[in-house]
Simulated scan of single mutants.
Amino acid sequence: MSDPYSVLGVPRTASEDDIRKAFRKLAKKHHPDLNPGDKVAEAKFKEASQANDLLSDPEKRRRFDAGEIDATGQEVPPRGFYRDQAGGFGGKYERAGAHESFVDMGGIFSEMFGERRGFGAGGPGGGFDMSGMPVTYSLRVPFLVGARGGKQRVNLPDGKTLDIDIPEGTTDGQTLRLKGQGMPGSQGQPAGDAYVEIRVEPHAFFQTRDNDIHIELPVTLTEAALGAKVRAPTVGGPVMLNVPAGSNSGTSLRLKGRGLLDRRSGQRGDQYVKLKVVLPEQPDEKLKEFLESWDAGRAYDPRKEMEQFT
């Protein structure tokens, strides 16, 4: 992966707010939902998501800046690591604390599987009788898969294909346990477990706060002034939303029970819809003529309350 600062287009001195704004700009431009079938946009979105995942976490950012982890978040072995580890079991090094993604696990697993088969004196058939070791790795899932639940197909390092059940309401950073999908045991002992840390990709317009969803919904001047029923997207699919007459940009409406499922309590959050009045892209002469003759439009000052703070 490229340097995360370069991917987001921010300097190394960028603030958290600068990073957040840069990522949102790229997400709105390259999100797969807005560019269906565009593989280039999809790749750029994933790259931006990985860069944001690293730089938006203060500890990960500190470790990356210090050279302790690379741009993918993986540990960077200190100088002389493999030499210092030599002379262990069988005179060969073993990697400790491996943490890889599904995509990158093939080489290290092959090496570890090979070493484990020859573990202990005497090679296969001798040595210790051990259960398999656990492994830990991460999996990125689309926002809506985490919100709605579903299956995510992955290819394991040993060539097997596995459909992982992503529970509804899965949030970023949660860990799933895959029993028996870790390192194989020796002498017929059972395999260890795999622990998968879920990294939920951000969405183009859904934002989460705890179990609530927040979204900005564009409406026309007519819909805001006169009121209307409009389609509003939710994680469960579009619903009809009643826009009250006289609504302004910034008006917030609540859709009860349309947020994320809290897996511990079984309760759902709400969705909050902030309206944004949008004028036509092309000038409308009739609208212009009306506004020029609309005396009431000059009779109020929407900025009057700001004067007391200046």
Rank of each mutant, 00 (worst) to 15 (best):
A51Y: 06
V200A: 05
S49I: 00
R20M: 12
A22W: 05
E115S: 01
T251M: 05
E307D: 06
I166H: 02
F290M: 12
P4T: 13
S252Y: 03
L241R: 10
S186T: 15
L8Q: 09
L261P: 08
K60G: 02
G106K: 01
E197A: 02
A48Y: 06
G97I: 10
H214D: 10
T175L: 06
D301K: 02
W294F: 13
H99N: 15
G87M: 15
P280F: 08
A43C: 05
D104G: 07
G80P: 12
A48Q: 02
E75F: 06
D210G: 06
D212L: 09
L156M: 13
D262A: 10
G192P: 03
L221Y: 15
A232W: 04
F143L: 12
E47V: 04
Y300G: 01
A191T: 08
A27P: 02
A204N: 06
L260R: 03
F89N: 03
S186L: 09
K304M: 00
R63F: 08
G123F: 00
R24P: 00
M133T: 14
L253H: 04
S131V: 12
P302N: 01
K229A: 14
M105E: 01
D301E: 04
E281G: 03
Y82S: 07
Y5Q: 11
Q267H: 09
K256L: 11
S293K: 04
K229S: 10
D84G: 11
V145I: 12
P32T: 05
T222D: 08
W294D: 13
V76H: 08
